[in-house]
Computed example of a mutant assay.
Amino acid sequence: MSEQLKVDAPRAPGSPGGWDARSQELVADVGASAGAGVSTGTKPARRGGVDPVKALMHRHRELCERAVDPLEIAAGLEAHGVTDRTAARFRHRDVFALAEEMYARVPRDEDERVAPEAPPSRDVPEVPAGWALFALLPGTACGLAAVGLELTEGRARLGVGLGGALAVAVALRVALRYGPLRSAHHVVPATRAWVCFLVAYALFGDGLLRAAVSGGPAGPWAPSTAAALGLCLAAAPALWCVRLFSVGARGRLPLSRGLAEFTASVRPLLLGVIALYLGALWILLVGAGAVYDVPAPAGAGALGALLLLSRLLTSYGFTRAPLLMLGAAGAAEAGALASVFAGRLPGCAWLAAPVEGAVRAWGPGLVPVVACGAAAGVLLLHSSRVLSRASAHADGAP
Score class of each variant (00 low, 15 high):
residue 10 P to A: 13
residue 12 A to D: 05
residue 13 P to V: 00
residue 15 S to Y: 00
residue 16 P to G: 11
residue 17 G to W: 10
residue 18 G to T: 05
residue 20 D to E: 11
residue 21 A to K: 06
residue 24 Q to P: 00
residue 25 E to F: 05
residue 25 E to C: 01
residue 26 L to D: 05
residue 26 L to Q: 03
residue 28 A to C: 03
residue 28 A to H: 08
residue 29 D to C: 04
residue 30 V to R: 03
residue 30 V to T: 08
residue 32 A to P: 00
residue 34 A to R: 14
residue 34 A to K: 11
residue 35 G to N: 12
residue 36 A to N: 01
residue 37 G to M: 03
residue 37 G to W: 05
residue 37 G to P: 02
residue 39 S to T: 02
residue 39 S to C: 02
residue 39 S to D: 06
residue 40 T to R: 08
residue 40 T to C: 07
residue 41 G to K: 09
residue 42 T to V: 06
residue 43 K to T: 14
residue 46 R to E: 15
residue 47 R to D: 06
residue 48 G to P: 00
residue 48 G to D: 15
residue 48 G to I: 04
residue 49 G to M: 04
residue 49 G to E: 02
residue 50 V to Q: 09
residue 51 D to V: 10
residue 53 V to G: 04
residue 54 K to W: 07
residue 54 K to G: 11
residue 55 A to S: 11
residue 55 A to E: 15
residue 55 A to N: 09
residue 56 L to F: 04
residue 57 M to V: 01
residue 57 M to A: 14
residue 59 R to L: 14
residue 60 H to N: 14
residue 60 H to G: 05
residue 61 R to C: 09
residue 61 R to Q: 15
residue 61 R to W: 14
residue 62 E to K: 12
residue 63 L to A: 02
residue 63 L to C: 02
residue 64 C to Y: 08
residue 65 E to I: 04
residue 66 R to P: 02
residue 66 R to Q: 13
residue 66 R to H: 09
residue 66 R to T: 08
residue 67 A to H: 03
residue 67 A to Y: 01
residue 68 V to N: 04
residue 69 D to W: 11
residue 70 P to V: 09
residue 70 P to W: 05
residue 71 L to E: 10
residue 71 L to Q: 12
residue 72 E to Q: 14
residue 74 A to G: 08
residue 75 A to K: 09
residue 76 G to N: 07
residue 76 G to V: 01
residue 78 E to Y: 00
residue 79 A to I: 01
residue 80 H to T: 05
residue 80 H to Q: 15
residue 83 T to V: 04
residue 83 T to M: 08
residue 83 T to A: 04
residue 83 T to F: 06
residue 85 R to F: 10
residue 85 R to S: 14
residue 85 R to P: 01
residue 88 A to Q: 15
residue 89 R to G: 04
residue 91 R to N: 09
residue 91 R to S: 08
residue 92 H to N: 15
residue 93 R to M: 08
residue 93 R to L: 11
residue 94 D to C: 03
residue 94 D to M: 01
residue 95 V to T: 14
residue 96 F to S: 01
residue 99 A to E: 07
residue 99 A to T: 01
residue 99 A to P: 02
residue 100 E to A: 06
residue 100 E to M: 07
residue 102 M to L: 06
residue 103 Y to N: 05
residue 103 Y to D: 09
residue 104 A to Q: 05
residue 107 P to L: 05
residue 107 P to G: 09
residue 108 R to W: 11
residue 109 D to R: 15
residue 110 E to Q: 12
residue 111 D to A: 10
residue 111 D to F: 10
residue 112 E to D: 08
residue 112 E to A: 04
residue 113 R to K: 09
residue 117 E to M: 13
residue 118 A to W: 11
residue 118 A to L: 14
residue 120 P to V: 15
residue 121 S to M: 05
residue 121 S to D: 13
residue 121 S to T: 13
residue 122 R to H: 07
residue 124 V to R: 15
residue 126 E to W: 14
residue 126 E to A: 15
residue 130 G to A: 00
residue 130 G to N: 01
residue 132 A to W: 04
residue 132 A to T: 06
residue 133 L to R: 11
residue 133 L to E: 13
residue 133 L to F: 11
residue 133 L to Q: 10
residue 136 L to T: 10
residue 136 L to K: 08
residue 138 P to C: 09
residue 138 P to H: 03
residue 140 T to M: 11
residue 141 A to T: 07
residue 141 A to C: 08
residue 142 C to H: 03
residue 142 C to P: 00
residue 143 G to E: 06
residue 143 G to S: 13
